[in-house]
């Protein structure tokens, strides 16, 4: 985008195509092209297919929003899948079993997520434990806490011999709007994208995260509050995981302590496929949005074609590698 940065000789179209955003867009278009060819007897052309592709990518996508903030600082957050499960369990308990008002459930759930993220942030940023280890510990701990809080059973509507009504909060999150064409969870996901984009692109804190990811020592010497800014990124990741947890519980109509296993790796893959570097300092929310759509559509296309599991896993692996290879910066 910055003309002085790139060689003035290259054509604007080439420049756009070789920019990170251009390449991420290309990967998404390639996946969509696969969908056009293998359209499963026209199922790919129905609006419902696209609404559902977005719906099923949304929970991963919300996790990816938080992960983008953390990965920009050259950190990682492996705990998001477990925090999602913990919040799903707590949210289901509060909403289904205790009939708490929706606002209280949402606020309390976000606080649970923030507390988990805050602990990760404190251990990683203040105590300077490697983020991989700090969040791995939280991944294990939060999963245990989810099992403890739920008593090892799913927190479901079947409770005390009764079948409890679906709480209004869950019905709201799982409903569809705009003439049945958009799932509410997708709207929530887009809201999260905008929030994370505002924080990264339009706020001083975002600049600080890029600076920390680029060169932490340089950032510290130039007066960036490294510990606070970094810890805040983990808090944000915990809050996004909590939002994802509520969405998951609403869609399952229960709090399953086993849910979300492995989701952190899918969300990380979405961030990386978008073009945000695991080394920190480079990337952004727009790229993550493209990465989420790429993997989301890939899953949907494999699903409508009823591709057997073995083939799905191999294809997904291949496409991740190809997408990341096209993302690699070529030497100038």
């Amino acid at each position: 985008m910055n003309p002085s940065e790139k060689a003035a000789s290259s054509h604007p179209v080439i420049r756009t195509l070789t920019s990170p955003a251009g390449r991420a867009l290309l990967a998404l278009l390639l996946v969509l092209l696969v969908g056009l060819i293998f359209n499963a007897d026209g199922a790919f052309f129905r609006p419902g297919t696209h609404r559902d592709a977005l719906r099923q990518a949304s929970v991963y996508g919300i996790l990816a929003c938080g992960l983008t903030l953390v990965i920009i600082t050259a950190g990682i957050d492996l705990a998001v899948g477990s925090v999602l499960a913990l919040v799903a369990v707590c949210g289901a308990k509060m909403a289904i079993h205790w009939h708490w008002p929706a606002v209280v459930v949402v606020v309390a759930s976000l606080l649970v997520g923030a507390a988990c993220g805050g602990t990760c942030g404190f251990v990683a940023a203040r105590l300077r434990v490697q983020p991989f280890i700090a969040t791995l510990a939280m991944m294990v701990f939060a999963r245990g806490l989810a099992k403890y809080a739920s008593g090892g059973m799913k927190v479901s509507r079947s409770f005390g011999g009764e079948f409890v009504d679906l709480p209004p909060l869950f019905a709201f999150i799982d409903k569809r709007i705009l003439g049945d064409n958009v799932s509410m969870v997708s709207v929530i996901f887009l809201g999260c994208v905008v929030l994370a984009w505002l924080a990264l692109d339009r706020h001083r804190w975002g600049r600080q995260l890029y600076a920390i990811g680029g060169n932490e020592d340089a950032a510290r010497l130039s007066g960036v509050p490294v510990v606070a800014a970094k810890a805040a990124a983990y808090v944000a990741s915990g809050v996004f995981a909590a939002i994802a947890g509520l969405c998951q519980a609403a869609q399952e109509q229960q709090g399953d302590p086993e849910t979300g296993g492995g989701y952190e790796l899918i969300a990380i893959a979405m961030v990386v496929i978008g073009g945000t570097s695991l080394m920190g300092g480079r990337g952004g929310m727009g790229l993550t949005l493209l990465g989420v759509l790429t993997i989301g559509y890939l899953e949907k296309i494999l699903s409508i074609n009823a591709v057997p599991e073995a083939g799905r896993l191999m294809l997904t692996g291949l496409i991740i590698v190809v997408a990341v290879l096209t993302q690699r910066r070529r030497p100038a």
Partner: peptide
């Protein structure tokens, strides 16, 4: 969640 996802595909087809 996987079952719901696969069923959506079946319903679309």
């Amino acid at each position: 969640p996987e079952a719901r996802k696969e069923m959506e595909s079946a319903l679309a087809r």
